[in-house]
Structures are given as C-alpha cells and as structure tokens.
Design a protein around this nucleic acid. Structure first.
Length: 438
RNA sequence: GCCCCGAUAGUAUAGUCCGGCCCAGAAUGCUGGCCUGUCGAGCCAGCGACCCGGGUUCAAAUCCCGGUCGGGGCGCCA
C-alpha cells in the first residue's frame, strides 16, 4: 500500500476521494464506540475516525491494537466534517500496521510534558518527530534555499572547498587534528583561505555551504564544535561596502522566503518575522569606544570589545535605528588575522566586518588583502611563518583582484530568527565538547 | 581554560536549606477497565525513581569529600 497523499494534501474539497496516507500514530483518542487515530507525517496531522458499527469489526480490531508511534498506512475515504481538525477526516477501509514500536517510548512525542534538551538530544530521532522541532528544520532548509536563490540570481557559483587542511594556518581558534596516513591534517575552522584562492583563480563570485570545526571546549548556548556556514566570496569589489550590501540582501532574502513559505511552521513556533530594511546600520571603530563609554563600558583604545559590548551595541542600535541587525566595521587590525585588509590611510584599523543579529555575531568577513607584498608584510607582523603559508601566498604573485567575503553561521541565524534559546535546537545532531552521539 | 549551579520513576518535577513524620508526593507516560465526536478528551484501578564511590551519624534523597554527566557565565568564536 503506497502513499498517495501527505496529510497536508487532504482537504475538505476532497470529500469522497479514496486516498492512502502513511505515517506514525501520533495519538489515539478512544471514546469506546468511536476511536480517533491521529496520524502524523512530515507535513502534519490527519484524523482517522473509526466508528464501531460503521466500519467492519475486523478493522476495529486492528484499530484497537494501535498505540503511539506505530507506523501505519491507511486507505480510506475523505470526509468533509466541520467538527474534524481542518474540516476533514478519513474514514478507513484498510489499516496496515507496518511497524510496532516497543512500549513505552523513552520520550513521548505527543505529550506536552517538557523534556530537557539533553534528554531530547539523546533521543534526537524521536525528538525530531515533534512538530515544533520538525518546524525548525523545515525553516532552516528554507533559509538556505533563500540564500541560494539570491546568490544564484546574483551570478554566484557554488563551489566545494576542502574540509581537511594541511596546516592550522589561520590562528585564533583551536583546530581538530586528524590522522592522515603518516601525516597530521586538520579539520578546517573556516573555508576562508581556499575561498580566496578560488576567487583569484578567476571564478570571481562563489559561495560554499559547508561545515567548520572548532576545538574549543565552549559551554555556551551559542557554540558548537561543528557548525555550517554560508560562505560567500567575490572579486572586483570597490571595498568592504560591497560585501555588506551582498550580505544584508542575502539575509533579507532568506527571511522573506521563510515568511512566505513557512507560515504554518512560524505559527507553531509562535514567531513573527519582520523583514528588516536595508542598508543595515554600520558602526565603526574607533567610534565604538565612545558609544560604549556612553553606556559606562570602558574598552581601552585599540582593543577588541567583549561579549557584553556586543549586547550593549545591539541595544543602542535597536533604539537608535530600530534595527535587529547591524554591521561592525574597522576592527583593530591587531586582533584580526593576517589576511584582512588594513585601511591604507589609517592602518591601525581593518576593513573587517561582523554582522550582529539580536546581539549575537552571525558572521565575520570583510575585504581581504590582495597585494602580495602587503600580505607578506602582515604575516611578518603577526609573527607567523612565511614558509608555512606559502601554499596560500604563492598565488597572490600571479595577479589577484581586490576581493572580500564572509561566512554566515546557519545555525546561529536559525537560532536568532526563531528566538531559540540554544543553538543545539537549530542543529539536527549537535556536536559539543561532551556530545558526539548520536 | 577559568568561575557558579545542578543530578529523584520512561519524561518532567515536589521533597534537600533545618537528617527521622519519605519502604518518597501530584502531573504526564505506560498497562487494564468504562465511555459513539474527541481534538492536551474524560473517569476508575494498577506500574514505575533518590547518578556512582567513599565518609559522618543511632538514623542520609537530605550533611561532607571524590568521580561522572549536565546547565549557565566569561574567554574564544559562526
């Protein structure tokens, strides 16, 4: 018995039509003489109504056996009925039991009892059956679709850059070592350097969707050891402003897509999406020190700001510009990696941008240094090995246009968009310092 | 890596401060029964738990130490 319809495809207008649905028994409400079997598939729920005396006794016996999370296929006739959920129900002619789960299940799918996140992640496959959890990933899929729609329209080409790298060259976060035959390789912490190489190869406008890894034992609601990013890189830019324009449109497009195509999921999650206006506000160093000081936060001139500052600035922007988004530009060069471009006229600052959304950093990016001599200079300034980075710098000798890009965290964006309290909610199978299973 | 907090049935919790009244309580789930329009169905009956190791004490879910696991804050960052 194959499925002919998802539950969402069955409407009151289909009255009298014979259909086959398949899925899991979400709940059984047994009133004695009438039994309501709520069937769930990935699209939603459908009530199957079995009345004693109306349907054959044999079928009633099968219905009596059903428990939560049985996998069943049901052939029946659609009936329009105002008192049924969404105005329609299915009167069964055949019920096939495909799989009988052991009982009781470790976590209940349909119960409203709260379940701790850690327990939910232990039983993630069952947890994902809950409509409010499923909704997060339907929306995440649409976010990425929105990104890709936009990038495709703008002429960006999808590429794949390596996840295994030969040297932990970027500095900053810790990397995971991997046994690679008789060598040590590392999982990339960002597809950054390879993206740059692809752009100067001549592909010009590219993006990469993929994972990055951080070997940081971070115990926070916003960090994962493995996360995915939408990483965009483009050549022939005027300056970092071009990158910001791409990024804000990318984000806005994804939000529009979700708002238009996920109304039911947004309703389940009780989220209302307001499409932000562009361009996003931009705050710059060193002006940022002054703003922070207004709020009683003293950061030494030329130093990086901290987490608290991020939240303060978000509040400031929200009040002044009514925006949940803003860019931070012109970070101090000394806290940024060697490849970022300094402002030539004032080289203490870098053309380096972060995008902050509801007080959380969504992405880092900016304009990269494309002049070979400058790159070499900056590597020396950072005290890094020229030899170790030769695999990268080499190619800047042979003609490189001005370019830039960013990597936007997909889980973080999902989390902030849906007001989730923990990034693990926005990850199918999160990898955190203590969790590697399932 | 540093700091703070927590762990009780399948789940989520009460009880812990102030040891005995707790062979641990209500919910949800599960099992069985009743019920012909439920939609978090309802009603009745039953099942099921103190993270691990050590210590203090006449007595430990409760106090102390260690371990494991988890949550949060900072740092780092997407």
């Amino acid at each position: 018995m194959l499925r002919t319809h998802y539950t969402s495809q069955i409407r009151p207008e289909d009255e009298g039509k014979e259909v086959v649905v398949a899925g899991w028994v979400h709940r059984v409400r047994d009133l004695g003489g009438v039994k309501f079997i709520i069937l769930r598939d990935r699209e939603g729920l459908l009530q199957i109504t079995a009345k004693r005396g109306v349907i054959p006794q044999e079928l009633m016996n099968i219905a009596d056996e059903l428990r939560e999370e049985y996998v069943i296929a049901v052939k029946g006739i659609v009936k329009a009925n105002r008192i049924a959920p969404k105005g329609r129900e299915l009167i069964p002619n055949e019920i096939e039991i495909i799989s009988r789960p052991i009982s009781p299940l470790p976590i209940s799918i349909s119960s409203k009892t709260d379940i701790g996140l850690d327990t939910r992640l232990d039983y993630r496959v069952l947890d994902l059956r809950r409509p409010e959890v499923l909704a997060v990933f339907k929306i995440q899929s649409k976010i990425v679709e929105g990104f890709e729609d936009y990038l495709r329209e703008k002429g960006f080409q999808k590429v794949f850059t390596p996840c295994l790298i030969g040297a932990a060259s970027e500095g900053g976060a810790e990397v995971f070592p991997v046994v690679y035959f008789n060598k040590t390789a590392f999982l990339r912490q960002d597809p950054q350097l390879h993206r740059q190489l692809v752009v100067i190869s001549g592909m010009d406008k590219i993006y990469d969707l993929g994972p990055s890894w951080r070997a940081e034992p971070s115990h926070t609601p916003r960090h994962l050891c493995e996360h995915r990013g939408c990483a965009v890189e483009m050549g022939f830019i005027n300056d970092e402003q071009d990158i910001m324009r791409i990024e804000e449109n990318l984000v806005t497009r994804a939000m529009l897509k979700v708002k238009e195509e996920c109304s039911e999921e947004l309703e389940i999650l009780e989220v209302n999406i307001e499409i932000p206006s562009t361009p996003f506000p931009e705050l710059r160093f060193p002006k940022i020190y002054e703003i922070l000081e207004e709020f009683g936060k003293k950061i030494p001139f030329g130093e990086d700001y901290d987490r608290e500052s991020e939240v303060i600035l978000a509040k400031y922007v929200k009040e002044k510009y009514k925006s949940d988004f803003f860019f931070v530009n012109r970070f101090p060069f000394k806290i940024k990696p060697f490849y970022v471009m300094k402002v030539d006229e004032d080289p203490q600052w870098a053309r380096s941008i972060d995008l902050i959304y509801k007080g959380l950093e969504l992405s880092s990016g900016g304009q990269r240094e494309h002049r070979y001599e400058k790159i070499v200079e900056q590597i020396k300034e950072k005290g890094m090995s020229l030899i170790g980075l030769q695999w990268f710098t080499e190619f800047f000798k042979y003609g490189a246009p001005p370019h830039g890009g960013f990597n936007l965290g997909i889980e973080r964006f999902t989390m902030q968009l849906l007001n989730l309290s923990n990034i693990r909610e926005a990850t199918l199978f999160p990898r955190t310092p203590e969790r590697l299973l399932p």
